[in-house]
Design a protein around this nucleic acid. Structure first.
Length: 573
DNA sequence: GCCGTTTTCGGCCCGACTGTTTTCAGTCG
């Protein structure tokens, strides 16, 4: 649940923190503002309501001073301190911090000395001068900033998981071929399964740092960003940065934990370590100066009095509290998935024939597969007319016989939800199908109320089993259409209609947060690939990672059921 | 600016790399 005033105050505190950073204020003061922002954002009730009570409860990280500022905002809708800071730091500078190699200190010096305010100002300054002695920028720094600006303008700051993951895996294979490399692991946000990632972190276990780092610098790259004893950073040809970290065997577990993040999770962990009299860093867990042996990440968590927390859960979104209360979810794994319930064939816009799809599903050891081509309104996707649908049903009937004992085949359809909320096929047709998916492919611009209503009417249809890609977003390409996900999840739970986590890496829809919300509302989740090509079938992993991030357990999922349980669920009544 | 089961003052997570420095500041994760 999002609260607008919480969001607003959190963002004011963050802006104050940014401004203080420019002004080179005490780093801990800056952190205090950020901590407070984070904690307000994570509240489960409206902050206005909290402070409207006579004895408001304590909010973590909010002391006397910040409490005063919150009250000021509630009364006047503004915080004077922020306005004061914005007099000193022009707002246009804030975004420019994203330029690699250009931090708040340098930016502010540029502003003080040269009055730069915009990207254009900075470009003029650094491309027309080879050095700026009065702000301690000589040739090399200027060059770095120029390169940072180029990257910034190309806008390649984050990559979809589905792009980053295969590159990371390929690099791991290459690094394994280097002499003296003992172990290689992907760390960072790729390991945590985040939907987009800024760079790759790859951890390497070796005894010979020198020869390995030289070999890393010989991997294909566009530019070497950094090269030290324990770290080599390369810029790949697609502008993706990869950081290789070298560690020896003793430190491998703690380094893997450390470099997997998230930063917020690690801060919490180190805090727990300190309270227990330990020190935790990438080299190990220490008691005074004595190193405690930790062979695995699990050893580290256990030594801190915690159970093992999977990387996908490490976001400081309640996982540590859940762990302490013995309530950590046992999240769904790829191996739990028994079938794919959203697949297209060349009857509509897929590239595989019916039989190819079935054979590929058998190769993946699935118990069942659903054929769900588009319905008639999806012109661009070559949607099936009623006649063509029944032709397909006939062919599927024959294949059900042919593959009996090998795989269960479900005949279905991905039916469009039309502008008025009606479905593309009548109930008379839908009743002949084994499974029905409903989804929106048109009318994205409708209001939140209308789209929510359209989806709810589909949920209530007695033949609809799954709502596919509920928000319609395409990461980096198309914003989600507006829906009330809470309301949708509540209706889905009530009417035994599952909500999909679409595994296609530009969709991942439901996203992690929405999936968690849907689960909490009691809705069933179905992780599907929406396959159009053979390769798409392997994207299931991205959906599973997203589900894990949403705390989805095996028992929350539709397609972890065996075939007879699944059939039972699909009957709806 | 926050916080306290060793503290109401003195900590706050921690370290690597680079560049311009010869002891450190800035950036990054």
């Amino acid at each position: 649940m999002k609260f607008q005033d919480n969001e607003k105050i959190a963002s004011i505190f963050e802006t104050i923190a940014d401004a203080l950073e420019f002004l080179n204020e005490n780093a801990f003061k800056i952190r205090a503002y950020r901590n407070a922002a984070e904690s307000i954002r994570n509240l489960n009730e409206s902050i206005t309501e909290i402070y409207s009570k006579p004895n408001p409860k304590k909010i973590e990280g909010v002391g006397k001073d910040l409490e005063q500022k919150i009250k000021e905002y509630i009364q006047t809708q503004k915080v004077a301190y922020l306005d004061e800071l914005l007099e000193k730091v022009p707002y246009t500078l804030f975004r420019l911090k994203d330029i690699r190699g250009l931090g708040p200190r340098t930016l502010y010096k540029m502003f003080e000395k040269y009055r730069v305010r915009t990207l254009e100002d900075i470009k003029k300054l650094v491309f027309e001068n080879d050095e700026l002695k009065d702000i301690s920028l000589l040739e090399k720094s200027i060059k770095k900033i120029r390169e940072g600006i180029k990257l910034y303008e190309e806008g390649q700051s984050r990559f979809p998981l589905g792009v980053a993951y295969p590159i990371a895996k390929d690099l791991v294979d290459r690094v394994y071929k280097i002499d003296n490399v003992k172990k290689v692991e992907i760390a960072g946000s790729v390991r945590r399964g985040k939907e987009t990632v800024g760079d790759l972190d790859i951890l390497i276990c070796t005894k010979d740092f020198n020869s390995v780092s030289k070999a890393l610098a010989n991997l294909e790259h566009k530019q070497i960003i950094a090269m030290g004893d324990t770290k080599v950073s390369l810029l790949l040809s697609n502008n993706m940065q990869v950081d290789f970290r070298l560690v020896n065997e003793d430190s491998f577990a703690s380094a893997l934990q450390y470099f997997s993040g998230s930063k917020e999770h690690n801060v919490r962990l180190r805090d727990i370590a300190i309270k227990k009299g330990f020190k935790l860093n990438e080299y190990g867990l220490f008691e005074k100066d004595k190193k405690i042996e930790t062979k695995t990440e699990e050893d580290i968590y256990n030594a801190l009095g915690l159970c093992y927390i999977k990387p996908t859960l490490r976001e400081n979104k309640g996982e540590i509290e859940a762990c302490l209360a013995n309530k950590l979810p046992n999240v769904v794994e790829l191996g739990d998935i028994k079938g794919d319930l959203h697949v297209h064939t060349n009857y509509s816009d897929g590239l595989m024939s019916l039989e190819e799809v079935i054979q590929e599903a058998i190769k993946r050891n699935y118990d069942y597969i659903a054929i769900t081509d588009h319905s008639v309104s999806s012109y661009v996707a070559n949607g099936l007319s009623v006649e063509r649908l029944y032709d397909q049903l006939n062919e599927i009937d024959k294949l059900k016989d042919k593959y009996k004992g090998k795989i269960h085949i479900l005949a279905g359809s991905e039916v469009d939800i039309k502008q008025n909320g009606e479905l593309d096929f009548s109930d008379n047709v839908l009743k002949d199908l084994d499974i029905v998916i409903a989804s929106i492919h048109q009318g994205f611009a409708n209001s939140k109320e209308i789209n929510t209503k359209r989806i709810i009417s589909a949920i209530e249809n007695p033949y609809v089993n799954i709502i596919a890609h509920p928000s319609g977003r395409l990461i980096g390409q198309r914003a989600p259409y507006e829906i009330d996900i809470q309301k949708i999840a509540e209706h889905a739970a009530k009417h035994k209609t599952a909500l999909e986590i679409n595994s296609f890496y530009l969709r991942l829809d439901l996203n992690d947060e929405h999936a968690r919300l849907a689960k909490n509302a009691g809705a069933k989740i179905c992780i599907n690939t929406d396959t159009h090509t053979k390769e798409n079938l392997d994207y299931m992993i991205y959906g599973v990672l997203t589900a894990q991030r949403g705390w989805i357990e095996k028992s929350d999922c539709l397609n972890t059921l065996n075939y007879s349980q699944l059939k039972q669920f699909l009957k709806k009544h």
